[in-house]
Amino acid sequence: MTTLTQQLHDEHAHLLPHIETMRTVADTVGQTTPETLGTALTDLQLFLTDHLIPHAEAEDRTLYPVIARVMGAAEATATMSRDHVEVGRLARELSTLREAVDRDGLNDERQAALRRVLYGLYTLVKVHFAKEEEVYLPLLEKRLPAPEAEQLLAELAQASHHQ
């Protein structure tokens, strides 16, 4: 594994426990105390806004244009960018639901909606990471010259810190 692909893999490994938490929280909706659920939802919202969405934005700005160039097709990463749009939409929906729960309590409809959004985010991000690691990272490893990989690594680090 090159330094570039190792760093991207490591970043995903760092994010995955939080992704797993989405499933765990969804599993407990309606079975845990409102306080525990509220804290978990707040923590997930912070993770989404402070870590996952900036990660996606950095990929859209820096990683995906390089992948598209290496693949010789400008639209090669369009479906991956669309995943990022959907993550943002689901994150906003989760925020709206959390506010409704805080304001009006947790009824059956909100429980079902929370589960749907949390399981949706969990599945979408897990599959998205798998596509990156199984398709794009091996492609970069094979086709991106080392100096370009190092430059891309620096650009990704800079993009991640300038959110």
Rank of each mutant, 00 (worst) to 15 (best):
Q151Y: 05
A146W: 09
A91H: 07
V101C: 09
L46F: 06
E132G: 02
Q151A: 15
T2L: 06
Q158Y: 04
A78V: 06
T36P: 02
Y119R: 11
P17M: 11
L44G: 00
H84S: 05
L153A: 04
A13Q: 12
M1H: 14
L118C: 02
R116T: 10
T62W: 05
L144P: 05
H162A: 14
T123A: 11
T32D: 15
L114Q: 03
L114D: 02
A73P: 14
A78M: 11
L139I: 01
A78H: 04
H161F: 08
V101W: 04
R110L: 14
G120M: 07
V70D: 05
V135T: 13
T79N: 14
A13D: 13
G105P: 01
H9I: 04
T24G: 03
T24P: 08
D27I: 11
Y122A: 01
R98Q: 14
A113V: 02
K126Y: 02
K131V: 06
P138S: 07
P65A: 12
H51Q: 15
T77C: 12
V125K: 00
D10L: 00
Y64Q: 14
T32K: 04
Y119P: 09
L140M: 07
R116H: 10
E133S: 02
L37T: 04
G88R: 13
Y136N: 08
A130E: 10
E133V: 00
L97H: 04
L15R: 02
L94G: 01
R92I: 01
R143H: 07
E141C: 03
L144R: 05
V29E: 11
L97M: 05
R143P: 00
A159E: 10
H18Y: 08
T5K: 01
G105K: 08
V85L: 14
A74K: 06
R103G: 03
A56N: 14
L139S: 07
V25I: 05
Y122M: 09
R69Y: 08
H51F: 13
I67W: 00
A130H: 08
T39Y: 06
E35Q: 13
H162E: 13
R61K: 13
L144Y: 03
E35G: 04
T42M: 10
D102T: 12
R92C: 05
A112K: 14
R23H: 11
A13G: 07
D102I: 05
V125H: 02
I67L: 15
A130D: 01
R103D: 15
L118W: 04
L97G: 02
S160A: 13
R69T: 09
D104W: 08
H128G: 12
F47W: 05
E133N: 15
R98D: 03
